[in-house]
């Protein structure tokens, strides 16, 4: 697998993880209060501000020989799965932040109306909360995916930079520059920049559409 394919695979797996883990967390933080919820949220958001090497160091310990996963027989160090895990951890805060804000902005009276109409909690979420928060959730997903794609530091710490196995695009660029292969670096940088640009453009589109749509009711046929 070349660096682009590997990056694609790792980003896809990480994005799935970001959605599966991030959406319930966002709902929990937006709709429930529990002891320590602020501390819990802060811990989830910590990778946003920690140096990637620190996140990588924690993951190294968690995945290392003395870590819980290793004793359970799962060895992720220096595998693409380990890189995907690192990407998930750093991408998750962006999803949680965006989706939490979107879910919190859904009027709880609408959810209560659905309950009175006979809906259970899953139906309330899937038919009311999710459709009304979908722009924010989509924006969070794109941002999280983009961050996962660009992940460098933590990935380097836990997965190394093994060409064909764990060397993603950002690592390949670093490698190319170190080795003086500027031609390779140029094309990889250009490709990465284009991908990043279109991700952010998509987010901007989502946010713009969300802003022009009143919270109570999109006109029929709105984008």
């Amino acid at each position: 697998m070349n660096a682009l394919q590997l990056s694609g695979l790792i980003t896809a797996v990480a994005t799935a993880g970001i959605v599966v883990i991030g959406l319930p967390l966002a709902w929990l933080l937006a709709r429930r209060s529990f002891p320590g919820d602020v501390v819990f949220e802060t811990l989830i958001l910590l990778p946003l501000v920690l140096p990637p090497s620190v996140v990588g160091y924690y993951l190294l310990i968690a995945l290392g020989d003395a870590g819980p996963l290793t004793s359970a027989g799962v060895h992720l160090l220096f595998t693409w799965q380990g890189a995907a895990l690192a990407s998930t951890v750093v991408g998750l805060p962006l999803m949680v932040k965006s989706a939490k804000a979107a879910i919190a902005s859904v009027d709880p009276a609408l959810e209560n109306a659905a309950r009175v109409c006979g809906s259970g909690e899953w139906e309330v979420f899937s038919r009311i909360t999710l459709p009304l928060a979908q722009r924010g959730i989509a924006a969070g997903t794109v941002l999280g995916a983009a961050r996962a794609f660009g992940e460098f530091g933590a990935t380097l710490m836990v997965a190394g930079s093994i060409p064909g196995r764990t060397q993603t695009m950002p690592l390949a660029i670093y490698d190319a520059v170190q080795a003086g292969r500027y031609g390779d670096a140029h094309s990889l940088v250009l490709l990465t920049s284009v991908l990043a640009f279109f991700s952010l453009l998509a987010v901007a589109r989502l946010e713009q559409a969300g802003a022009t749509t009143p919270a109570h009711g999109a006109p029929a046929g709105g984008v």
Binding site: D107, L110, N112, R115, C117, G118, I128, L132, P214
Partner: peptide, 22 residues
């Protein structure tokens, strides 16, 4: 009993219509 099992019709103050549905 949760709200969904109480079998009540309820028109709330601001109507609470689902904005994404017709």
């Amino acid at each position: 009993l949760p709200a969904r099992a109480r079998h009540i019709g309820y028109v709330m103050q601001q109507y609470a219509l689902f904005p994404h549905m017709t």
